[in-house]
């Protein structure tokens, strides 16, 4: 690791999401390799890198979908390494998936009511859907602009609408940190603008973002802090204009 000097292994910032030496291999291929990253709380962080550089695997390790082989993940001073995904979600980290994942045979409104931030199973069993939850769901649907579809089955929505639904569903639990895996993937320019706008507004309301994205225009205009991955490891980090000119980043992307 040649880049440790720029990723100091000091105590992560209070309130931030950070990983230290996170690694994960699949049958000899090191998908994530000793990733030590600290994300800035309250900011829009981006994770970029060439295809197959381990960004999604990294996301999956952070959110507990995959158990890392070694290393640790901490959030707001707590070690959350290897916790089951629902615990990590309940700790306040929401995420979307690369190929948009919604619940196809449930209505849009039902999709919104899945998320759980707290409470016991028994509590959920006896409580009917709360009026307040439904109101909140409608408010969020209005916010992303698909409130008129609340009774439609999610599978009948267009891909763009499904993406908006997924985002709204993540917001339902009111997570402090939101991880988006390719929010602009497969959607038209108008919708990219719209999603970008939403991210910006939510950020101004205090949400921290971690975004994996290939759309450079979006990343450069949106993010405060960029981490560049190559072959499973972070090779550079900093403000957009700094990262843009980093020779290691150019090398990784262009293979110079």
């Amino acid at each position: 690791m040649s880049d440790t000097e720029m990723q100091p292994r000091a105590e992560p910032l209070a309130g931030s999401l950070a990983t230290v030496g996170l690694s994960k291999s699949f049958g000899g291929v090191r998908a994530v390799d000793d990733a030590t990253v600290t994300f800035l709380p309250g900011k829009i962080n981006a994770v970029i890198g060439p295809n197959g550089s381990g960004k999604t695997t990294y996301f999956n390790c952070v959110t507990g979908m995959i158990k890392p082989d070694s290393g640790s993940v901490s959030y707001r001073g707590n070690d959350i390494t290897g916790r089951p995904p629902h615990r990590i979600a309940q700790a306040g980290i929401g995420r979307s998936f690369q190929l948009c994942r919604i619940f196809p045979r449930m209505t849009v409104l039902e999709n919104m009511l899945v998320s759980v931030r707290s409470g016991t199973v028994l509590g959920k069993l006896v409580s009917a859907r709360q009026r307040t939850d439904i109101d909140r769901a409608r408010e969020l649907l209005t916010r992303v602009g698909i409130d008129h579809l609340e009774h439609a089955e999610a599978r009948d929505l267009s891909y763009g609408q499904q993406k908006l639904l997924e985002l709204a569903g993540v917001l339902m639990a009111d997570p402090e940190t939101i991880m988006l895996d390719e929010p602009a993937g497969g959607v038209n320019p108008a919708l990219i603008d719209r999603i970008g706008g939403l991210v910006r507004t939510l950020n101004s309301e205090g949400k921290t973002f971690l975004i994996v994205e290939h759309n450079m225009d979006m990343i450069m205009s949106l993010s405060d802090h960029i981490v560049v991955f190559d072959r499973g490891s972070p090779i550079a980090a900093g403000a957009p204009e700094v990262v843009q000119d980093d020779p290691r980043v150019l090398e990784a992307y262009l293979g110079v």
Binding site: V114, S115, V126
Partner: peptide
């Protein structure tokens, strides 16, 4: 019918549709 209408039921149906996704939304599957 009661479960079908509850938050619990919504979580269960989410498990049927996509268990990983449900868990990522905080459902203790």
């Amino acid at each position: 019918w009661l479960i079908d209408r509850s938050r619990f039921g919504t979580g269960l149906k989410a498990i049927r549709e996509d268990e990983d996704k449900a868990q990522s939304l905080g459902v203790p599957t």
